[in-house]
Simulated scan of single mutants.
Amino acid sequence: MEKRNHYSPEFKSQVVLEVLREEATVNEIATKYGVHPVMVSRWKQEFVERASEVFKKGPSEAEKKLEAEQKHVADLERKVGQLTYEVDWLKKKSDELLGPGWKKKMR
């Protein structure tokens, strides 16, 4: 089975911009970059469809999702910090109340 190629967004945009300049045909540009012409056409279509997103105000859906995930992670990290603090406090108080060797006695 053949391994799929993964192209960077920068590479794709470079190819599409060259296609949009119309200095050469799609087939010539595809040959130049070693990409199938159908793939270049797909990239061009996707590029044109999403062009309006560049001028939208405010965060994109992906940015909103990333921000929500970052907030969730921060909340979880705060919770872990709080729980760690509480466990350390309980260990300290247990040592004070039951003596330093209380763990061995409980086994």
Results as ranks from 00 to 15, higher is better:
residue 92 K to D: 07
residue 64 K to W: 02
residue 91 K to A: 05
residue 66 L to D: 04
residue 53 E to N: 08
residue 93 K to C: 06
residue 52 S to D: 14
residue 57 K to P: 11
residue 47 F to Y: 03
residue 53 E to I: 06
residue 62 A to S: 12
residue 74 A to P: 07
residue 68 A to S: 08
residue 44 K to M: 10
residue 47 F to A: 03
residue 81 G to W: 04
residue 44 K to P: 03
residue 73 V to A: 14
residue 61 E to P: 07
residue 60 S to A: 05
residue 82 Q to K: 13
residue 74 A to C: 12
residue 64 K to Y: 01
residue 77 E to Y: 09
residue 93 K to Y: 07
residue 61 E to N: 08
residue 74 A to I: 10
residue 64 K to G: 03
residue 85 Y to W: 10
residue 45 Q to S: 14
residue 56 K to G: 03
residue 79 K to Q: 13
residue 71 K to S: 13
residue 63 E to K: 01
residue 83 L to E: 00
residue 84 T to R: 09
residue 80 V to A: 03
residue 67 E to I: 06
residue 51 A to D: 07
residue 87 V to A: 05
residue 52 S to N: 14
residue 56 K to A: 00
residue 67 E to S: 10
residue 90 L to Q: 09
residue 89 W to F: 11
residue 55 F to L: 10
residue 75 D to V: 06
residue 82 Q to C: 13
residue 55 F to K: 13
residue 47 F to R: 00
residue 91 K to V: 07
residue 88 D to C: 07
residue 60 S to N: 04
residue 77 E to L: 14
residue 58 G to C: 01
residue 45 Q to G: 12
residue 40 V to K: 02
residue 50 R to C: 13
residue 86 E to P: 06
residue 80 V to K: 00
residue 42 R to K: 15
residue 59 P to H: 07
residue 61 E to A: 12
residue 48 V to E: 01
residue 73 V to T: 10
residue 81 G to Q: 01
residue 57 K to C: 11
residue 55 F to I: 04
residue 74 A to E: 14
residue 82 Q to D: 15
residue 56 K to I: 03
residue 65 K to D: 04
residue 75 D to G: 12
residue 64 K to V: 04
residue 79 K to L: 12
residue 46 E to L: 13
residue 56 K to Y: 03
residue 59 P to G: 08
residue 91 K to S: 13
residue 56 K to M: 11
residue 88 D to N: 13
residue 68 A to C: 09
residue 78 R to S: 15
residue 66 L to M: 08
residue 48 V to D: 01
residue 81 G to H: 02
residue 61 E to D: 09
residue 52 S to W: 10
residue 62 A to P: 08
residue 43 W to Q: 00
residue 86 E to D: 09
residue 48 V to N: 04
residue 44 K to Y: 05
residue 65 K to A: 05
residue 77 E to W: 11
residue 83 L to M: 00
residue 76 L to G: 10
residue 77 E to N: 15
residue 83 L to N: 00
residue 41 S to L: 05
residue 76 L to S: 09
residue 83 L to H: 03
residue 45 Q to I: 10
residue 67 E to R: 10
residue 43 W to Y: 00
residue 72 H to Y: 14
residue 78 R to Y: 15
residue 46 E to T: 13
residue 89 W to N: 11
